Simulated scan of single mutants.
Amino acid sequence: MDDQDTGRPARRVGAATPTRHMRELDRDEALRLLATVSLGRIVFTRHALPAVRPVNHLVDGEDVIIRVHGGGALAALAAPADAPGVVVAYEADAIDPVTHLGWSVVVTGYASPVSDVEDADRYASRLCPWVGHPMTGALRIRPDLVTGFRLEADPAMGCAPC
């Protein structure tokens, strides 16, 4: 018997679920893992509502740098003159679709345009686009809060696909 929504075998009532647990990541490990992937999601405010966009990123020290292209919603982000930037959240993960093991990291902080021309050029050469729009700028997210977790199998129980 298959689950009609997923096409996977239906789980029997009372069937054992693989034992997994979440382990909280410290700031250093979370940023190290974030640097191992190049695609994530930025959460920002647009027209007073939350908006989410998938974007390319790189990690430079503790800063998260993302691509911006002209005409996009991110190009319009502007902070008041007396503010350190616009508050955003950035999330990236690597979770196996079969075992459901992996990690997720969320960075919350202030985003501001990269104004140094040398930095912008260096980032442009390292941020490979995943859409056909040319990069017209970059945003630097300076993290205030870095959280994350790793989904791990219980070593004694192992982990089978769900």
Rank of each mutant, 00 (worst) to 15 (best):
M1W: 13
D3H: 10
D3T: 04
Q4K: 11
T6F: 04
T6L: 10
G7M: 02
R12I: 12
V13A: 15
A15K: 12
A16Q: 12
A16T: 15
T17D: 11
P18K: 12
T19E: 13
T19Y: 07
H21A: 14
M22H: 14
L25V: 02
D26R: 09
D28H: 13
L31D: 06
L34N: 01
L34H: 00
A35M: 06
T36M: 09
T36K: 03
S38H: 13
G40D: 05
G40T: 05
G40Y: 03
R41Y: 09
V43F: 03
V43M: 07
T45C: 08
A48G: 10
A51I: 03
A51Y: 06
R53N: 11
R53M: 08
P54E: 07
H57G: 12
H57F: 10
L58K: 11
V59L: 14
G61L: 07
E62V: 00
I65Y: 06
I65R: 00
V68W: 04
G70V: 05
A75G: 07
A75W: 07
A76Y: 03
A76P: 00
A78F: 10
P80T: 13
A81E: 10
D82M: 01
A83I: 09
V86L: 08
V87W: 08
V88M: 07
V88P: 03
V88Q: 01
A89E: 07
Y90N: 02
E91R: 13
A92L: 01
D93R: 06
A94P: 03
I95Y: 03
P97R: 08
H100Y: 00
H100K: 06
L101M: 02
L101P: 02
L101H: 02
W103I: 10
S104C: 15
S104V: 11
V105R: 11
V105A: 08
V106E: 04
V107S: 10
V107G: 06
T108S: 14
G109D: 05
S112T: 15
P113W: 12
S115I: 09
S115M: 11
D116H: 01
D116Q: 05
D116S: 08
D116L: 06
V117P: 13
E118H: 12
D119M: 14
D119F: 11
A120K: 09
S125T: 12
S125M: 09
R126M: 11
L127G: 05
H133Q: 13
H133A: 11
P134F: 12
T136G: 04
A138W: 00
A138P: 00
L139R: 02
I141G: 06
R142A: 15
D144P: 04
L145T: 15
V146G: 03
G148Q: 04
G148M: 01
G148A: 09
L151W: 10
E152L: 15
E152V: 06
P155Q: 07
A156D: 01
A160T: 14
P161I: 05
C162I: 13
